[in-house]
């Protein structure tokens, strides 16, 4: 594993190029180009604000912001995992012809997701101010949460991208799974709304504490509860280990399976 890490460092330029390629390609050919990276979350926010303030009245103060704060990190998680699933299979041509540490492919998807997430935060902060919500010192704990989430996302992407080579149905299964997962994560509803008999589902959900942390930082303006994050830390590191080991074991036959 140490060898893989050294090699990944050696290939950092490739990782960087893969990420810029992803970012550039997404809005390739559109008039507004890279601006869409900001426009997308902004317009999303506008729609939610209109819908939840006029059509579906929900008895939560600044509900659209509550939703937005949870939705952005969730999208970082779910899109990274979903896109990375096919990252090995779709780059078969490269894998069969050139040697490079294969980990680069899913990792670059995760990093791209991270960059997009960070850019969307640039929209989030002015939006909070616009809705006259306070930004407190809790924001300084944000990097810790983001790093935690990144570790978890990396673990997941490594795991699913390598498994998908041998079991291509995974891509479709994950699509459905993510939708279900979204609804057992308190993003569109606060934890208080979850009936007690389903509370265990949220408790088991490793993504939920991360979402709480983001909500604490941005929506409630308090420092996240560290106890629950301890478990997330253990889970994230474990998932990264499992992801790397699985990937390391499965990557030997990538070129033949593609």
């Amino acid at each position: 594993m140490l060898k893989t890490l050294c090699e990944l460092y050696k290939y950092r330029e490739m990782l960087k190029n893969m990420v810029t390629k992803e970012l550039r390609q997404r809005y390739k050919g559109s008039v507004l180009g890279f601006l869409w990276t900001f426009l997308n979350p902004l317009l999303m926010l506008v729609i939610y604000s209109i819908v939840f303030s006029t059509i579906m009245r929900i008895d939560i103060e600044n509900y659209s912001m509550f939703l937005f704060v949870g939705l952005l990190p969730w999208m970082f998680f779910s899109t990274s995992v979903l896109i990375s699933t096919g990252s090995i299979v779709n780059n078969g041509n490269l894998i069969k012809k050139i040697y490079f540490p294969r980990e680069i492919l899913p990792i670059s998807v995760a990093i791209t997701g991270l960059v997009n997430f960070l850019l969307s935060l640039i929209i989030l902060v002015p939006a909070l101010l616009f809705f006259k919500m306070e930004i407190t010192v809790a924001i300084f704990t944000l990097p810790v949460i983001i790093v935690l989430q990144l570790i978890m996302v990396l673990g997941f992407t490594l795991f699913v991208s390598s498994l998908n080579v041998y079991f291509r149905d995974l891509e479709h299964i994950l699509g459905v799974l993510m939708t279900a997962w979204f609804y057992v994560t308190p993003i569109i509803f606060p934890l208080q709304m979850v009936p007690t008999k389903f509370l265990w589902l949220v408790k088991l959900n490793p993504v939920a504490p991360l979402m709480f942390a983001y909500q604490d930082i941005f929506y409630y303006g308090v420092v996240p509860k560290w106890e629950s994050l301890g478990n997330v830390f253990i889970f994230s590191v474990a998932s990264l280990m499992i992801g790397m080991l699985t990937f390391g074991y499965l990557k030997r036959n990538f070129a033949e399976e593609l």
């Binding site: 050696k10 290939y11 330029e13 490739m14 960087k16 390609q25 041509n93 012809k97 490079f100």
Partner: peptide, 21 residues
């Protein structure tokens, strides 16, 4: 094998060389 059709020749040199490490 690692070329990207939309990139310019120069960009592809950078991109492809990075794939070679």
């Amino acid at each position: 094998a690692g070329f990207h059709p939309d990139f310019t020749g120069r960009e592809n040199i950078y991109y492809n060389s990075s794939v070679f490490g």
